[in-house]
């Protein structure tokens, strides 16, 4: 168990700034998620923490020790790759024992430690198999066992769930979180899937363009998004943004409801909403349209839960509303969150 401190790290590949001045502290035993679209630098940041890439500038501290120039083997971190990177020619047992051998752990301990790790992940019966004889979920568990067997200070997980099918992914999410809580190992988890990030992270670090956009609990980054990128990246669909009086007014689709469906006592802002399209998704209805006074190319979306049965027709001009507490304000130029403005 350890802390990880990333101090003003940059990483340039020729002219590309993969990481552009990121500062981030991971607490002991924390499950931190690095979230961002592909190419945002999250994987590069993780590889830098592992020591597979060396930062152009800045420093990385693990448990207070500066490891910036050290090779991976001197950092005591374990990593699970998206592809799981199991050694195809080794049995499950030999895959799991490999880090112990490489780290010079005494031979007498190998068997017990491998069996312990295998037991935690339910792999006891598979120890003699080779990776190609395993299913996707089993491979992922072998990769996790290999990561935990040496009791690393930090575990780095690079999209370990993205190779699983949807059904398996949900249960693997649950297993992985339980497993992390049980070990209490400081864990950094990279993903581009916001559902994984929201569901699993103690805190989420949202990245874009090599920069850290926001760091906070899932609730914070969702409800108190620091800028328009975070606001629109999170949520499905993301936050609606409407230009108004020189700033951007934001509200989430699930808070954008027909006037009739709003509780009468709340303070609300009303909009005339020109409905262009209705999508029926089972649990929800998505209403696409244009808010009056907004430019024609700014489509807003309302997400109506199936409990709201109020009929909405295409081409209808309907009155919609948002409660004041759900309105967010952003600077039109920088995209940063600003204090409430006159409506």
């Amino acid at each position: 168990m350890a802390t990880v401190d990333i101090n003003n790290v940059t990483k340039h590949f020729d002219d590309v700034r993969a990481i552009d001045g990121v500062t981030l502290s991971v607490q002991e035993g924390e499950f931190l998620v690095l979230l961002g679209p592909s190419g945002c630098g999250k994987t590069t940041l993780m590889r830098t923490i592992a020591g597979l890439e060396h930062p152009t500038s800045g420093e990385i501290l693990i448990d207070g020790r500066n490891v910036t120039g050290l090779p991976p083997r001197a950092r005591d971190v374990a990593m699970v790759f998206q592809s799981y990177a199991l050694y195809p020619h080794k049995t499950v047992f030999n895959n799991i024992v490999f880090p112990l051998k490489a780290q010079g752990i005494p031979k007498e301990e190998w068997d017990t430690r491998v069996r312990e790790a295998a037991q935690v992940l339910g792999l006891e019966k598979l120890l003699d198999r080779r990776p190609r004889q395993l299913s996707g979920g089993e491979r992922q568990r072998v990769a996790l066992a290999r990561a935990m067997v040496r009791d690393p200070k930090v575990m780095l997980l690079d999209e370990p769930l993205s190779n699983l099918d949807a059904k398996l992914r949900a249960s693997a999410r649950d297993e992985l979180q339980t497993f992390q809580r049980r070990l209490g190992t400081t864990t950094i988890f990279v993903t581009h899937d916001q559902v994984e990030a929201m569901g699993m992270g103690d805190r989420i670090a949202v990245m874009s363009g090599g920069k850290l956009r926001q760091l906070g609990t899932p609730h914070e980054v969702y409800t108190e998004s620091a800028d328009t990128f975070v606001a629109t990246f999170l949520g499905s669909p993301g936050m609606n943004l409407i230009p108004r009086n020189g700033y951007l007014l934001g509200f989430r689709p699930e808070n954008f409801l027909p006037r009739e469906a709003m509780p009468s006592q709340s303070q609300i802002e009303t909009f005339r909403f020109d409905v262009k399209r209705v999508e029926y998704l089972g649990a929800d209805r998505l209403i696409y349209g244009i808010v009056d006074h907004a430019p024609d190319d700014v489509i807003s979306i309302a997400r109506l839960p199936s409990a709201v049965t109020f009929p909405i027709e295409v081409h209808e001009n309907h009155e919609f509303a948002v409660a004041h507490e759900h309105l967010r304000y952003f600077d039109a130029d920088t995209g940063l969150r600003i204090s409430p403005q006159p409506l």
Binding site: R47, A50, P72, F81, Y87
Partner: peptide, 24 residues
């Protein structure tokens, strides 16, 4: 990924050569 994994697992040049690369 395999070579990076060996690297993170703590394997040095010779171990990676004889245990990973040559068998593969």
């Amino acid at each position: 990924d395999i070579l990076d994994q060996a690297n993170v697992d703590g394997s040095g040049f010779w171990r990676t050569l004889f245990e990973i690369k040559l068998p593969l």
